[in-house]
Every structure is written in C-alpha cells, then in structure tokens.
Simulated scan of single mutants.
Amino acid sequence: MKLNSQQDFLPKTLGEALKELLEKEQTQEMLNELFHLLKKYDLSSKEEQDVRNEKLAQLIN
C-alpha cells in the first residue's frame, strides 16, 4: 500500500486520518486520487508537500 511507504513523511495526524479513511470502503476514483497524491510524496519539495497535504485533508473531509 502506498500509504505505508509514505507514512513516515506525512504529518502524523494526516497519516493517521488517512489510515482510518482506508479502513472503510472507498470508491476507485478516491483511491486513485489518494495514490496520485502519495506517489513520490517523499521526493516532493516542501511547497509541493504542503499543496498535497491540503488536497489529502480535503479527501478526508
């Protein structure tokens, strides 16, 4: 799972919220968006990570 490989690079609260989200059934569209946002997260600049964090937070809410 992509989340597991990027968990250490995510803000702790965001990572935990994403983990909870994935414990419930999700649409394929949402899973694709999540995968896209997590892909190479660790290699992204701080600014790009901030943008992705905001988008990830929107997925959770």
Rank of each mutant, 00 (worst) to 15 (best):
K2A: 15
N4T: 11
N4W: 08
N4L: 13
S5L: 12
Q7E: 07
D8C: 08
D8I: 11
L10A: 09
L10D: 06
T13A: 15
L14V: 05
L14D: 00
L14G: 01
L14P: 00
G15F: 00
G15L: 04
A17T: 02
L18M: 01
K19R: 13
E20H: 05
L22Q: 11
L22F: 03
E23W: 04
K24Y: 06
E25M: 01
E25D: 10
Q26C: 13
E29C: 03
E29L: 05
M30N: 09
M30H: 00
L31S: 01
N32S: 09
E33N: 06
F35N: 15
H36P: 04
L37N: 02
K39R: 13
K39L: 11
Y41Q: 08
Y41T: 06
L43F: 03
L43D: 02
S44F: 02
S44V: 00
S45C: 03
E47T: 15
E48P: 02
Q49V: 00
V51W: 09
E54A: 14
K55G: 02
K55S: 07
K55P: 00
K55W: 01
L56I: 12
L56G: 10
L59T: 09
L59A: 11
L59E: 11
N61P: 12
N61I: 14
N61G: 15
N61Y: 14
